[in-house]
């Protein structure tokens, strides 16, 4: 007789802990063929609220880390992911379908992307900041700083590479993230949370909510303690994206607009995913004796 498997109900990842949804709700996650895989917590507006609180608490210390240290930690995430490649491959294959090789490629690319962003930690300021030769006896320089708490609606299709490609650029510069995972494909995000929890990332720096971007997005977009939002997860949903952008205007969030369709995640990202969520600070000081 075949063994009865232990069916899992995955939880949320908030402030470095794995709580159930405040609402108590969960939903069934199926594989690409519609077969039951697991239950995932269905995050509610109150989970958004808790995640934002956790993120805000983590922001000060995380942004105060040295860039070198943040780079080390991102690299550590890549190392731990590398260790758990089979699990990620399985999760991606289950979620997205396709061949094992295709899933492997996705995982490889996701790990490589983390490594790429890890290297940016202590270079971005050198590339996009500068000394300004003002017409007077003043030292004047401009350098990027993280914008704060960033709401990230992760892509719906690319469950791992897409997820990593929107989270890594947010946190590498010192921001903290409240991520809403793909609704139908949340398991790679859940596994990613487990990696984050075991790879030196301070609790609250990345918070992962499994659930519906259409439900959670409005709460994130309207939240007055969220500084920016990436709308990638509602790509193609024009009306929803517009309403989220309107809500985001209430505290002038920096908005990374939703594309018409998910981009080719394999392409080199460029700087825009990072620069969308930094502030440029200019400091003046007199030069004298």
């Amino acid at each position: 007789m075949a063994r009865i498997d232990v069916r899992k109900t995955y939880k949320l990842y908030i402030g470095g802990a794995f709580p159930r949804s405040e609402s108590g709700h969960s939903y069934e996650v199926t594989d690409s063929k519609g077969k039951f895989v697991a239950n995932a917590a269905l995050a509610s507006r109150k989970d958004v609220r808790d995640a934002v609180v956790a993120a805000r608490k983590a922001f000060g210390p995380w942004s105060a880390r040295t860039a070198y240290n943040r780079g080390q930690i991102l690299y550590r995430i890549a190392e731990v992911m590398e260790d758990r490649r089979p699990q990620f491959e399985e999760a991606v294959k289950q979620s997205e379908g396709g061949s094992a090789a295709a899933a492997r490629n996705q995982v490889d690319a996701a790990v490589d992307r983390l490594v790429w962003y890890a290297g940016w930690a202590d270079k971005l300021a050198q590339v996009i900041g500068n000394a300004n030769p003002v017409a007077g006896p003043f030292f004047n320089h401009t350098a990027p700083e993280p914008t704060g708490v960033v709401g990230v609606l992760a892509p719906q299709s690319s469950s791992l590479l897409g997820l990593v490609s929107v989270v890594a650029p947010v946190i590498v510069t010192g921001n903290v993230a409240v991520v809403v995972s793909s609704y139908e494909r949340p398991l790679p995000a859940v596994t990613f949370s487990e990696v984050l929890a075991t790879s030196d990332v301070p609790g609250g720096v990345v918070n992962v909510l499994t659930g519906d971007a259409g439900t959670l997005g409005p709460w994130l977009a309207a939240h007055m303690d969220v500084n920016a939002i990436d709308l990638c997860g509602v790509a193609g949903a024009t009306d929803l994206a517009t309403s989220l952008e309107v809500a985001a205007a209430d505290n002038l969030k920096r908005v990374r607009r939703a594309p018409d369709a998910e981009p080719d995640w394999a392409a080199e990202p460029g700087l825009a995913p990072m620069t969308a969520f930094v502030e440029q600070k200019t400091v003046w000081h007199p030069i004298g004796i």
Binding site: N132, P133, V134, A135, G136, F138, N140, T142, Q280, T282, W284, H285, P286
Partner: peptide, 10 residues
């Protein structure tokens, strides 16, 4: 210093 402006300064 305060209220200094310069075209080279963002």
């Amino acid at each position: 210093t305060f209220n200094k402006f310069d075209p080279a300064s963002p």
